[in-house]
Design a protein around this nucleic acid. Sequence first.
DNA 1: CCAACGTCCTGCGTGC
DNA 2: TGCACGCAGGACGTTG
Length: 289
Amino acid sequence: MPELPEVETIVRDLRKRIVSKKIKTSNCSYPKIIRGAAFDDLSKSIRGRSAISVQRRGKNILVGLSGGQTLWVHLKMTGNLLFEGPGEPVGGRLRQMIERKHVHFEICFDDGSRLLFADIRKFGRVALIKEESETIARNPREHLLGELGLEPLSDGFTFEKFVIAIGKRKKSIKEVLMDQRVIAGIGNIYANEILFDAKINPFENPRFLTHKELSRLFLSIKTVLRKAIRFRGTSFSDYRDAGGKKGAFAAQLKVYRKAGEKCPRCGNIIQKSKQAQRSTFYCGFCQAK
DNA sequence: CCAACGTCCTGCGTGC
DNA sequence: TGCACGCAGGACGTTG
Protein backbone atom coordinates (compact mmCIF):
# COMPACT_ATOMS: atom_id res chain seq x y z
CA MET A 1 0.00 0.00 0.00
CA PRO A 2 2.91 2.42 0.10
CA GLU A 3 1.95 5.20 -2.32
CA LEU A 4 3.68 8.50 -3.00
CA PRO A 5 3.34 9.98 0.55
CA GLU A 6 4.56 6.80 2.24
CA VAL A 7 7.46 6.35 -0.18
CA GLU A 8 8.38 10.02 0.18
CA THR A 9 8.41 9.65 3.98
CA ILE A 10 10.69 6.62 3.77
CA VAL A 11 12.99 8.33 1.28
CA ARG A 12 13.40 11.44 3.47
CA ASP A 13 14.13 9.29 6.52
CA LEU A 14 16.64 7.15 4.69
CA ARG A 15 18.37 10.14 3.14
CA LYS A 16 19.22 11.39 6.64
CA ARG A 17 20.38 7.99 7.80
CA ILE A 18 22.26 6.19 5.03
CA VAL A 19 23.85 8.84 2.81
CA SER A 20 27.67 8.58 2.98
CA LYS A 21 27.55 5.16 4.62
CA LYS A 22 29.68 2.46 3.04
CA ILE A 23 28.26 -0.99 2.21
CA LYS A 24 30.14 -3.83 3.84
CA THR A 25 27.98 -6.81 2.91
CA SER A 26 24.49 -7.72 1.75
CA ASN A 27 22.36 -10.81 2.28
CA CYS A 28 19.28 -12.23 0.62
CA SER A 29 17.14 -15.08 1.92
CA TYR A 30 14.51 -15.00 -0.82
CA PRO A 31 16.22 -14.49 -4.21
CA LYS A 32 12.94 -14.06 -6.12
CA ILE A 33 12.72 -10.48 -4.90
CA ILE A 34 15.85 -9.60 -6.89
CA ARG A 35 15.03 -8.53 -10.42
CA GLY A 36 17.44 -8.67 -13.32
CA ALA A 37 20.84 -10.04 -12.34
CA ALA A 38 21.34 -12.78 -9.75
CA PHE A 39 21.78 -11.74 -6.14
CA ASP A 40 25.47 -12.76 -6.11
CA ASP A 41 26.20 -10.31 -8.93
CA LEU A 42 24.27 -7.57 -7.17
CA SER A 43 26.03 -8.27 -3.91
CA LYS A 44 29.50 -8.13 -5.49
CA SER A 45 28.65 -4.97 -7.41
CA ILE A 46 27.50 -2.96 -4.40
CA ARG A 47 30.18 -4.14 -1.94
CA GLY A 48 32.42 -1.29 -0.91
CA ARG A 49 30.18 1.35 -2.53
CA SER A 50 28.76 4.24 -0.56
CA ALA A 51 25.20 5.51 -0.63
CA ILE A 52 25.33 9.02 -2.09
CA SER A 53 21.65 9.84 -2.61
CA VAL A 54 18.13 8.62 -1.90
CA GLN A 55 15.42 9.67 -4.32
CA ARG A 56 11.82 8.91 -5.18
CA ARG A 57 10.24 8.61 -8.62
CA GLY A 58 6.53 7.79 -8.36
CA LYS A 59 6.41 4.89 -5.93
CA ASN A 60 9.97 3.82 -6.82
CA ILE A 61 12.87 4.24 -4.39
CA LEU A 62 16.28 4.95 -5.90
CA VAL A 63 19.42 4.72 -3.80
CA GLY A 64 22.33 6.25 -5.70
CA LEU A 65 25.68 4.56 -5.08
CA SER A 66 29.22 5.76 -5.63
CA GLY A 67 30.47 4.53 -8.98
CA GLY A 68 27.24 5.47 -10.76
CA GLN A 69 25.01 2.51 -9.96
CA THR A 70 21.54 2.79 -8.46
CA LEU A 71 19.72 0.43 -6.17
CA TRP A 72 16.06 0.28 -7.14
CA VAL A 73 13.36 -0.75 -4.67
CA HIS A 74 9.63 -1.09 -5.17
CA LEU A 75 7.59 -1.89 -2.06
CA LYS A 76 4.42 -2.90 -3.91
CA MET A 77 1.72 -3.79 -1.37
CA THR A 78 3.31 -4.70 1.92
CA GLY A 79 7.01 -3.98 1.59
CA ASN A 80 9.00 -2.14 4.26
CA LEU A 81 12.43 -0.55 4.15
CA LEU A 82 13.72 -0.28 7.70
CA PHE A 83 16.86 1.21 9.08
CA GLU A 84 18.55 -0.16 12.16
CA GLY A 85 21.26 1.98 13.67
CA PRO A 86 24.56 0.56 14.93
CA GLY A 87 24.04 -1.37 18.14
CA GLU A 88 20.41 -0.37 18.47
CA PRO A 89 18.17 -3.34 17.68
CA VAL A 90 14.69 -2.17 16.84
CA GLY A 91 11.60 -3.16 18.72
CA GLY A 92 7.93 -3.32 17.86
CA ARG A 93 6.89 -4.28 14.42
CA LEU A 94 10.35 -4.57 12.92
CA ARG A 95 11.39 -7.00 15.61
CA GLN A 96 8.25 -8.96 14.75
CA MET A 97 9.12 -8.92 11.04
CA ILE A 98 12.61 -10.21 11.79
CA GLU A 99 11.35 -12.93 14.07
CA ARG A 100 8.71 -14.04 11.60
CA LYS A 101 11.37 -14.23 8.88
CA HIS A 102 9.80 -11.55 6.70
CA VAL A 103 13.16 -9.87 6.10
CA HIS A 104 14.31 -10.98 2.64
CA PHE A 105 17.21 -8.67 1.89
CA GLU A 106 19.61 -6.65 3.98
CA ILE A 107 22.49 -4.27 3.47
CA CYS A 108 25.07 -4.02 6.25
CA PHE A 109 27.03 -0.78 6.42
CA ASP A 110 30.56 -0.61 7.77
CA ASP A 111 29.48 1.35 10.88
CA GLY A 112 27.30 -1.56 12.01
CA SER A 113 23.99 -0.10 10.84
CA ARG A 114 21.67 -2.04 8.54
CA LEU A 115 19.03 -1.41 5.90
CA LEU A 116 16.40 -4.15 5.86
CA PHE A 117 13.88 -5.00 3.19
CA ALA A 118 10.93 -6.84 4.76
CA ASP A 119 7.75 -7.88 3.03
CA ILE A 120 5.02 -10.18 4.33
CA ARG A 121 3.63 -10.92 0.89
CA LYS A 122 6.90 -10.93 -1.05
CA PHE A 123 5.52 -8.75 -3.87
CA GLY A 124 8.19 -6.07 -3.45
CA ARG A 125 11.28 -6.09 -5.67
CA VAL A 126 14.90 -4.96 -5.51
CA ALA A 127 17.32 -4.51 -8.40
CA LEU A 128 20.59 -2.88 -9.33
CA ILE A 129 20.50 -0.40 -12.18
CA LYS A 130 23.98 -0.22 -13.64
CA GLU A 131 23.59 2.92 -15.74
CA GLU A 132 23.85 6.35 -14.17
CA SER A 133 20.68 7.52 -12.50
CA GLU A 134 20.54 10.53 -14.81
CA THR A 135 20.19 8.21 -17.76
CA ILE A 136 17.22 6.63 -16.07
CA ALA A 137 15.57 9.96 -15.42
CA ARG A 138 16.02 10.93 -19.05
CA ASN A 139 14.70 7.66 -20.40
CA PRO A 140 11.11 7.09 -19.29
CA ARG A 141 11.01 3.67 -20.95
CA GLU A 142 13.74 2.33 -18.72
CA HIS A 143 12.44 -1.07 -17.82
CA LEU A 144 12.51 -1.05 -14.03
CA LEU A 145 10.85 2.31 -13.79
CA GLY A 146 8.31 1.47 -16.44
CA GLU A 147 6.82 4.27 -18.44
CA LEU A 148 6.26 6.75 -15.65
CA GLY A 149 4.07 9.78 -16.03
CA LEU A 150 4.05 13.20 -14.41
CA GLU A 151 5.53 13.66 -10.97
CA PRO A 152 2.61 15.38 -9.18
CA LEU A 153 4.60 17.34 -6.61
CA SER A 154 7.29 18.55 -8.98
CA ASP A 155 7.51 22.01 -10.56
CA GLY A 156 6.95 20.34 -13.92
CA PHE A 157 3.44 19.31 -12.92
CA THR A 158 1.51 22.15 -14.52
CA PHE A 159 -2.22 22.41 -15.15
CA GLU A 160 -1.63 22.34 -18.90
CA LYS A 161 0.40 19.11 -18.78
CA PHE A 162 -2.12 17.59 -16.40
CA VAL A 163 -5.05 18.31 -18.72
CA ILE A 164 -3.21 16.89 -21.73
CA ALA A 165 -2.22 13.75 -19.82
CA ILE A 166 -5.74 13.14 -18.49
CA GLY A 167 -7.74 14.19 -21.50
CA LYS A 168 -7.02 11.46 -24.02
CA ARG A 169 -7.78 8.57 -21.72
CA LYS A 170 -10.93 6.51 -22.12
CA LYS A 171 -11.08 4.80 -18.73
CA SER A 172 -12.83 6.23 -15.68
CA ILE A 173 -11.14 9.16 -13.96
CA LYS A 174 -10.21 7.01 -10.97
CA GLU A 175 -8.48 4.40 -13.10
CA VAL A 176 -6.67 7.18 -14.95
CA LEU A 177 -5.46 8.73 -11.67
CA MET A 178 -4.05 5.35 -10.65
CA ASP A 179 -2.36 4.75 -14.00
CA GLN A 180 1.36 5.25 -13.32
CA ARG A 181 1.96 6.14 -16.98
CA VAL A 182 -0.25 9.22 -16.58
CA ILE A 183 0.66 10.47 -13.10
CA ALA A 184 3.24 8.60 -11.02
CA GLY A 185 2.62 7.78 -7.37
CA ILE A 186 -1.15 7.68 -6.82
CA GLY A 187 -2.61 4.37 -5.63
CA ASN A 188 -6.02 3.30 -4.42
CA ILE A 189 -6.12 5.15 -1.10
CA TYR A 190 -5.17 8.56 -2.48
CA ALA A 191 -7.17 8.20 -5.70
CA ASN A 192 -10.29 7.81 -3.53
CA GLU A 193 -9.33 10.67 -1.22
CA ILE A 194 -8.35 13.04 -4.05
CA LEU A 195 -11.63 12.48 -5.91
CA PHE A 196 -13.62 13.09 -2.73
CA ASP A 197 -11.68 16.28 -2.07
CA ALA A 198 -12.31 17.46 -5.63
CA LYS A 199 -16.02 16.45 -5.49
CA ILE A 200 -15.67 14.30 -8.59
CA ASN A 201 -17.41 10.98 -9.24
CA PRO A 202 -14.85 8.17 -9.58
CA PHE A 203 -16.75 6.65 -12.53
CA GLU A 204 -16.75 9.88 -14.51
CA ASN A 205 -15.31 9.82 -18.00
CA PRO A 206 -12.34 12.24 -17.99
CA ARG A 207 -13.48 13.69 -21.32
CA PHE A 208 -16.64 15.03 -19.71
CA LEU A 209 -14.90 16.89 -16.89
CA THR A 210 -15.38 20.64 -17.04
CA HIS A 211 -12.53 23.11 -16.78
CA LYS A 212 -13.70 23.90 -13.25
CA GLU A 213 -13.64 20.21 -12.25
CA LEU A 214 -10.21 19.70 -13.77
CA SER A 215 -8.94 22.71 -11.83
CA ARG A 216 -10.29 21.30 -8.57
CA LEU A 217 -8.80 17.89 -9.34
CA PHE A 218 -5.40 19.36 -10.14
CA LEU A 219 -5.42 21.25 -6.85
CA SER A 220 -6.71 18.26 -4.83
CA ILE A 221 -3.95 16.00 -6.13
CA LYS A 222 -1.35 18.37 -4.72
CA THR A 223 -3.08 19.27 -1.46
CA VAL A 224 -4.06 15.72 -0.50
CA LEU A 225 -0.61 14.29 -1.28
CA ARG A 226 1.17 17.13 0.54
CA LYS A 227 -1.05 16.79 3.59
CA ALA A 228 -0.48 13.02 3.66
CA ILE A 229 3.28 13.60 3.59
CA ARG A 230 2.95 16.02 6.52
CA PHE A 231 1.20 13.23 8.43
CA ARG A 232 3.91 10.76 7.35
CA GLY A 233 1.56 8.56 5.33
CA THR A 234 -1.30 6.16 6.00
CA SER A 235 -0.81 3.04 8.14
CA PHE A 236 -3.41 0.32 8.33
CA SER A 237 -1.66 -2.93 9.05
CA ASP A 238 1.54 -2.98 7.02
CA TYR A 239 3.04 0.40 6.23
CA ARG A 240 5.77 1.70 8.55
CA ASP A 241 8.36 4.43 8.05
CA ALA A 242 12.10 3.68 7.94
CA GLY A 243 12.17 3.81 11.74
CA GLY A 244 9.34 1.25 12.01
CA LYS A 245 6.75 3.83 13.11
CA LYS A 246 3.20 4.28 11.83
CA GLY A 247 2.04 7.18 9.71
CA ALA A 248 -0.79 9.32 11.08
CA PHE A 249 -2.84 10.05 7.95
CA ALA A 250 -5.33 7.19 8.50
CA ALA A 251 -7.18 9.47 10.96
CA GLN A 252 -7.47 12.11 8.22
CA LEU A 253 -9.08 9.83 5.63
CA LYS A 254 -12.53 10.97 4.55
CA VAL A 255 -13.85 8.06 2.44
CA TYR A 256 -11.30 5.26 2.07
CA ARG A 257 -12.56 2.18 3.94
CA LYS A 258 -15.50 4.14 5.30
CA ALA A 259 -18.42 2.46 3.53
CA GLY A 260 -21.66 2.90 5.48
CA GLU A 261 -20.35 5.86 7.45
CA LYS A 262 -21.58 9.42 7.05
CA CYS A 263 -19.94 11.69 4.51
CA PRO A 264 -18.02 14.32 6.54
CA ARG A 265 -19.13 16.98 4.07
CA CYS A 266 -22.85 16.34 3.52
CA GLY A 267 -23.86 13.53 5.88
CA ASN A 268 -25.00 11.08 3.22
CA ILE A 269 -23.82 7.48 3.42
CA ILE A 270 -20.48 6.63 1.84
CA GLN A 271 -20.75 4.01 -0.90
CA LYS A 272 -18.43 1.15 -1.73
CA SER A 273 -18.05 -0.13 -5.26
CA LYS A 274 -15.48 -1.79 -7.52
CA GLN A 275 -13.43 -0.47 -10.40
CA ALA A 276 -10.86 -2.62 -12.17
CA GLN A 277 -10.91 -5.10 -9.25
CA ARG A 278 -10.21 -2.35 -6.75
CA SER A 279 -12.42 -0.91 -4.03
CA THR A 280 -13.85 2.50 -4.68
CA PHE A 281 -15.30 4.65 -1.89
CA TYR A 282 -17.27 7.79 -2.56
CA CYS A 283 -20.19 9.94 -1.52
CA GLY A 284 -22.97 9.51 -4.06
CA PHE A 285 -24.36 12.93 -3.18
CA CYS A 286 -21.48 15.39 -3.18
CA GLN A 287 -19.56 13.34 -5.76
CA ALA A 288 -22.62 12.88 -8.00
CA LYS A 289 -22.05 12.58 -11.72
C1' DC B 1 -3.70 -1.46 -30.09
C1' DC B 2 -6.40 -2.14 -25.89
C1' DA B 3 -9.34 -4.16 -22.25
C1' DA B 4 -10.01 -7.72 -19.01
C1' DC B 5 -8.45 -11.03 -16.27
C1' DG B 6 -4.79 -13.97 -13.94
C1' DT B 7 -0.59 -13.97 -11.17
C1' DC B 8 2.33 -13.30 -7.31
C1' DC B 9 1.81 -13.85 -1.75
C1' DT B 10 0.30 -13.91 3.29
C1' DG B 11 -2.70 -12.60 7.00
C1' DC B 12 -6.99 -11.65 8.51
C1' DG B 13 -12.02 -11.81 8.80
C1' DT B 14 -16.17 -14.42 7.93
C1' DG B 15 -19.24 -18.26 7.79
C1' DC B 16 -20.39 -23.05 8.23
C1' DT C 1 -12.89 -25.01 17.55
C1' DG C 2 -11.27 -25.56 13.14
C1' DC C 3 -11.18 -25.34 8.50
C1' DA C 4 -12.14 -23.36 3.87
C1' DC C 5 -12.63 -19.51 1.51
C1' DG C 6 -12.70 -14.65 0.06
C1' DC C 7 -10.51 -10.42 0.20
C1' DA C 8 -6.83 -6.86 0.27
C1' DG C 9 -4.26 -4.76 -4.30
C1' DG C 10 0.63 -2.70 -7.54
C1' DA C 11 2.38 -3.89 -11.51
C1' DC C 12 3.36 -7.18 -14.83
C1' DG C 13 2.05 -11.10 -17.94
C1' DT C 14 -1.23 -13.39 -20.78
C1' DT C 15 -5.36 -13.84 -23.36
C1' DG C 16 -9.06 -12.42 -26.51
